[in-house]
């Protein structure tokens, strides 16, 4: 028995020695696992993917385009424009007799791209600006951050509306205006984070080893910033969509014949008195579902990536 044990132990020792390199859990792997455990977040990713897919594949099933007016329905939208499969208006028609299904697809595309493009602009400008201010430090940092303070003191919505009125209402203008406003918070967050990473011992260790400053930024600082940037960006997207929608709801956002969730909801709300509640409910359902999804994903990402919870 004892001998057998000895042999076994020897075998085990050999096995351990020959064992291949153990796969490590990087912080990203860890984060992914934590994110996957968050049911609301994973479900949200699924639902959101469906919505995005819908906005791409949806048009192939549409009977009407978003510009066609169904003359047969016009004038009697409340009775004939209801959602039905028979006449091809799956979501019904709007008050002008246009197919709401196609309009919602169009609105979804625009709203989502406003969200993503706006957030991307904000993330890129904000991260670069904040990282430079934080890493360079000193006077440069002071100067750059005072500019941010000044810009922040101006009420954003006011500027946005002003810009749209002055420079005309185009989607491009909307992208630029929203993106320009949203990078301010981003730059502050990134600057703070850069400051704290810059003083971490591993950055000092890299300097002591003789790593160049540019390599320190790309190899050590940026990868450690990424978590915060991802979390904040995921919360920026719904923020952008909300701003765009509220502006469109006020009638200042995207222009006919183009449309967005905000504009569709606005149209639907105006005609709710005429028993055409579907005109409000379909765009609203997409809007609310997507926002919920974005916030759940944002929450999930924060829980997964935030080092404080560890």
């Amino acid at each position: 028995m004892l001998v057998l044990n000895k042999v076994k132990i020897q075998e085990m020792a050999d096995n351990i020695a020959e064992m291949d390199a153990v796969k490590g859990r990087s912080l990203w792997t860890d984060a992914r696992r934590r994110f996957m455990q968050n049911k609301a977040a994973t479900a949200s990713v699924f639902v959101l993917t469906l919505i995005v897919l819908f906005s791409f594949i949806g048009p192939y099933f549409a009977v009407w385009t978003n510009e066609q007016i169904d003359w047969a329905v016009l004038g009697r939208v409340a009775e004939l424009g209801q959602p039905s499969f028979a006449n091809g208006h799956f979501f019904g028609t709007d008050s002008l007799g246009r197919d709401l299904y196609s309009r919602v697809i169009q609105g979804t595309r625009i709203s989502l791209s406003v969200g993503f493009v706006g957030a991307t602009v904000a993330v890129i400008i904000g991260t670069l600006y904040g990282a430079i201010a934080g890493y360079v430090g000193g006077r440069v940092d002071q100067f750059m951050m005072r500019i941010v303070d000044i810009l922040m003191a101006i009420p954003g919505m006011f500027v946005l509306i002003l810009m749209l009125v002055v420079f005309g209402r185009s989607i491009l203008m909307l992208f630029i205006a929203i993106g320009l406003l949203a990078w301010l918070d981003m730059s502050r967050i990134v600057r703070g984070q850069t400051l704290s990473i810059k003083n971490k011992e591993f950055v000092e260790a890299a300097r002591a080893t003789g790593v160049k400053n540019s390599k320190i930024i790309t190899r050590h600082i940026v990868p450690n910033l990424l978590g915060v940037v991802v979390v904040y960006a995921s919360l920026l997207v719904p923020g952008m969509i909300l701003i765009e929608s509220s502006i469109s709801f006020l009638g200042l956002g995207v222009q006919e014949p183009s449309t967005s969730w905000g504009a569709l909801i606005s149209d639907g709300a105006k005609t709710i008195r005429y028993d055409t509640e579907w005109q409000l409910l379909f765009p609203l359902a997409f809007f609310v579902t997507s926002l919920f999804c974005f916030y759940f994903i944002g929450d999930g990402l924060r829980d997964a990536l935030d080092p404080k919870d560890r």
């Binding site: 990087s26 011992e201 591993f202 260790a205 080893t209 160049k212 050590h220 990868p223 450690n224």
Partner: peptide
């Protein structure tokens, strides 16, 4: 070379051990 006070803080959390130890060679 230098060794630091807080052992965990002196290692980049996003790099694996092999990359960390090899950094001076790479540099």
């Amino acid at each position: 070379q230098m060794i630091f006070q807080d052992p965990l803080a002196s290692l980049d959390p996003r790099m694996n051990i092999g990359e960390i130890i090899a950094e001076p060679i790479k540099t």
